[in-house]
Design a protein around this nucleic acid. Structure first.
Lengths: 200, 200
DNA sequence: CATTAAAGTTTACGGTGATAACATGATGAT
DNA sequence: ATCATCATGTTATCACCGTAAACTTTAATG
């Protein structure tokens, strides 16, 4: 690649007709906007503006708004998955469950718009080709995590209920705190995270 | 009131300039629409159309859309409260807690749009004059319910955590089922409702 | 009755998601 | 090298939304 003119290589050409990688730029801008807005308060035009492109350019890469949002969901699911995996690394089954629960809640609190989009939005967004999506990975991770603390002779129903208990608890408290119905408080979160373990 | 003309008293005058009780008609129409749409998919114009009135007539009774939605929230909170109270009537503390939890979840599943509006919507809607609102009643009901099954020497922190556990559980499972991340299943709900009791 | 205020109406504005028709320029065959 | 093609941009437009302003109708009051 040539260094132009004054040697500064900041890629400051005022505008190029073709963006280069608009698709991922839109996704990045979308994720950024989701940090401050809810998904339904974020307009496509706003995303396009953030990237410096016309409003309808988005439609060259996504059939509609939901398609872009779905893409953001997948990114979120991957992030969530990774956070949990990191938190669990090298822990015993019990402490791993607690750690992944904490990571789950902290992810939700740190990414309000994204988490709400992933979890608390009409299913139209979620179940377009939802198999092989990263969402399923996150759920499988939870189930495995829970399975590891159950006795080996536990029934399938017991597995199901235990997993659902854990998920309901972390999802419930996350949503209550995101919606400001409950004040975020680390101590309370810790106390809640111990409950599934006591019960098992 | 006079019976007119043919004796049919159906109030079928084609149109009157003044509606008579537009405010409550709007609330009723809003509640009805919430049965099939989410709150942000329900437009003010749609509500006005349902009542047969011009779009801007709404603004004679509510300063903006959120104000109408807030009114709907209050109706929902009252209904929820009443459902729980009925379910608890004449039960022992333990069975009362379980019954009110079941009533809570069933209310959520039966009123998706309304429940989501009440609980899973940005706080702007909820905390306008939220004291003396019916929402607080519902929460207090839960806390009392939980307090009744705790040992008398339980600390304030234990009360808080136990109440939050119960709320997180029923809210979490309600939302997961509303968002179709978990299939509604009475057996599973029953199993989950026993957990707070086992723990206590 | 005449006046006034409450409760409706029409009109209008800026913002939105989406479609259609047009413009540009990167790519590959000649 | 030139040129056609076509993906990737653009502008123009539509219907709908929330909301504000100005006008109209009707009920209520002195």
């Amino acid at each position: 690649m040539m260094i132009k003119g004054n040697g500064v290589n900041i890629e400051s050409e005022p505008r190029r007709y073709h963006h280069g990688d608009l698709r991922s730029a839109l996704v990045a801008a979308g994720l950024e906007l989701l940090a401050s807005r809810a998904a339904d308060e974020m307009s496509l035009r706003e995303v396009a503006r953030a990237v410096g492109v016309s409003a309808t350019a988005v439609y060259r890469h996504f059939p509609d708004k939901q398609a872009l949002l779905f893409e953001l969901c997948e990114h979120g699911a991957q992030q969530l998955c990774e956070s949990q995996r990191i938190a669990m690394a090298g822990k015993t089954p019990k402490t791993a469950l607690e750690a992944s629960g904490r990571a789950y809640i902290l992810f939700a609190l740190a990414n309000p718009g994204l988490y709400r989009l992933m979890m608390a939005t009409k299913p139209s967004i979620k179940y377009i080709d939802a198999h092989d999506s990263a969402m399923d990975n996150a759920m499988q991770l939870l189930k495995d995590c829970v399975a590891n603390v159950l006795p080996t002779n536990a029934t399938a129903m017991e597995h199901e209920v235990a997993a659902l208990h854990a998920w309901s608890l972390v999802h419930g408290i996350s949503m209550l705190m995101l919606d400001e119905l409950v004040a975020p408080d680390g101590k309370v979160i810790d106390a809640l995270l111990e409950i599934p373990l006591n019960f098992v």
